[in-house]
Write a protein that binds this DNA or RNA. Structure first.
Lengths: 341, 341
DNA sequence: CAAATCACTGGGAGCGCTCCCATGCGCGAA
DNA sequence: TTCGCGCATGGGAGCGCTCCCAGTGATTTG
């Protein structure tokens, strides 16, 4: 067990004594209150440095009734759907955004109903100042519950078009649109798409982008050029086969995820198509796989790390101003051109 | 700003009042002290349930001078080297291992020297009960510094053969050995290897496994069959080309990472070799890429999630028993056979 | 020149809990 | 019956900090 009581750490009181001021003044200095004379402030800062003083978090939390901690909540849904570095990038972005705050980042896995209840109880008891929700399922009600208890919350991605809670998303529609426009601009005329599972909002968006772009294309929107997948490689293969059967002459495919694009690649090659000569392929996510396919995959990149950074920023704002409105941020995506199309 | 003072949460005192006992007794119940009569305990538990009481972490930490928090530290080294779900899997394992503790998991990114100092200071001030260190560079001295301040610490992977600090590693030597034995058992006679950067202990281990397995093979160990890479795909291509130039007749390659194996695959195909007919290829890590190559890659799987779980367990033990010895756990790896060899 | 104002500052009163000592009580032994 | 002992229990004394009010001296105003 830990040593009992005294940790040997200098306390605010000792800093005050060394600086020759009162506790209140030291507290003001630590908290950047403007109501301290500059000379006094320097005195205190010197004492702090000399003693190597670090405020005791627990004491601050107790006395100030806040926590200086935010939770990063990760529901154990099918997160494998997402491009894998996603999680790691988000975390780095969030870490970045929180770097010069002294908020702590609590990692909270919510995989079972029990853990979910426990987390909610915890939130209700205000043991955290805010919540970041990552890779949430569209039907999850966690955000609403949190909003109901006035807990500052930010989502990565929205659950639907009329999401109310604050979120940071990437421009899936625009990304898809750009991908298709690129194909069209490079002379492709028969552009098909493989969608994700349409009960996921993100998949709907990418489809919408395709439709919007194709609308201005000779030929226009044609339902039979749309095949449905579920973000898995296998579904990509199957969907590609369907498309090929219906439209042997197609010369381009936009897949709503890189993983499905890889599946499409296989089917195409098996059917004797050369890539990109015969058929151009564009994916979405710019996942690491995209750089390891042959040919390397053109893909739409989401600024994942920046999403994390932005989430942190939005959360900080809604923590410091509880009355602030929901913020909806949509970050630009970017087409990364490689060899596949 | 948060509401001032009263959070509306029930306190231990109120529980005591409702149960008709003293504060001390309620505290004993919460902390599972045996020195409470069963009837009293039930009374208290009922009151707790009725009020929905949740102990205040800050108050406990302050009064008890501990923190109930452990830090998961992620240095911003070239972690991209590692198979990507690594981070996510470790986190899940750790989360698992901590699930029925009420320890909090603090995510701590240490990317700059300043952050490093800040973290060390933080640890020195005992603001955490223990540390989990992930994907550390071999030359990093963080573990030693932490050990020096008697901070319970567990590493994922060791930095060298004579690592002293507690660690949980996977059996890289054994995994490599198994991979090569498998190749040999399936009739391959000219087995080459592509190593990782040999200033990394993990790369040394995988090479050693190769050497040990090859020693019992007709032909035995031959330095010219060993090419050096750095875990990148490009280095895999290059190393493969070197090997092919020296030994056009080789019929198998063990690459110390999947990513390098992918590079080797490309070079081999470009050289007109069929896989696995002409040359068998085995990788290491069983990363997602392994399932997306053509043909799918045989690879050595590390039980990453279990590593996380074990790290948590080891850390818990060394927190509760400060005098406990260093624990070194090496988990078994597993050969995942796919089409490439 | 007195009174009012203002900028800083000191320190008491908690925040909710754990630690630990004192108290009460039941029970077996003398 | 009396004494002693130990188990259960109550509650005082902090843990280190923030909040806030009262106090000090300097400055301004009438």
């Amino acid at each position: 067990m830990a040593a009992k009581g005294r940790t040997g750490q200098p306390t605010l009181e000792e800093v005050a004594a060394l600086a020759g001021v009162g506790r209140g003044t030291v507290s003001r200095v630590i908290n950047n209150s403007p109501r301290v004379k500059d000379t006094t402030r320097h005195l205190v800062e010197q004492a702090i440095a000399q003693l190597g003083y670090i405020p005791n978090r627990a004491a601050r939390a107790l006395a100030g009734s806040r926590t200086d901690a935010v939770a990063l909540v990760i529901p154990e849904t099918e997160k494998r759907f997402f491009a894998e570095p996603y999680f790691s990038d988000i975390v780095h972005g969030v870490g970045d955004g929180l770097a010069d705050t002294d908020l702590q980042l609590l990692l909270t896995l919510v995989r079972t109903e029990k853990e979910r209840q426990r987390f909610l109880q915890y939130a209700r008891a205000r043991r955290i100042d805010g919540v970041l929700l990552v890779s949430l399922h569209d039907s999850d009600t966690l955000p609403d519950l949190l909003a109901g208890m006035d807990m500052p919350t930010v989502l990565s991605g929205r659950r639907s078009g009329d999401e109310s809670v604050s979120y940071v998303d990437s421009d899936n529609v625009g990304g898809a649109r750009a991908a298709v426009r690129h194909l069209s601009a490079s002379g492709r005329r028969g552009i098909a798409t493989i969608t994700g599972p349409l009960d996921m909002y993100v998949a709907q968006c990418r489809l919408r982008g395709y439709e919007e772009a194709v609308r201005n294309t000779p030929g226009g929107p044609r339902p039979s050029w749309i095949a449905h997948g579920d973000f898995t490689e296998e579904s990509g293969r199957r969907a590609m086969a369907e498309l090929l059967a219906l439209h042997p002459g197609l010369d381009a495919v936009f897949a709503a995820s890189d993983v499905m694009a890889v599946g499409a690649l296989h089917t195409l090659r098996a059917a004797g198509r050369r890539i990109p000569e015969d058929v151009a392929v564009v994916g979405f996510d710019d996942s690491p796989i995209a750089r390891h396919t042959d040919p390397q995959l053109t893909s739409v990149r989401q600024p994942v790390e920046e999403m994390g950074r932005t989430m942190a920023r939005v959360l900080l704002e809604s923590i410091s101003d509880a009355s602030s409105a929901w913020q909806h941020v949509v970050l630009r995506t970017e087409l990364v051109r490689r060899a596949s199309g």
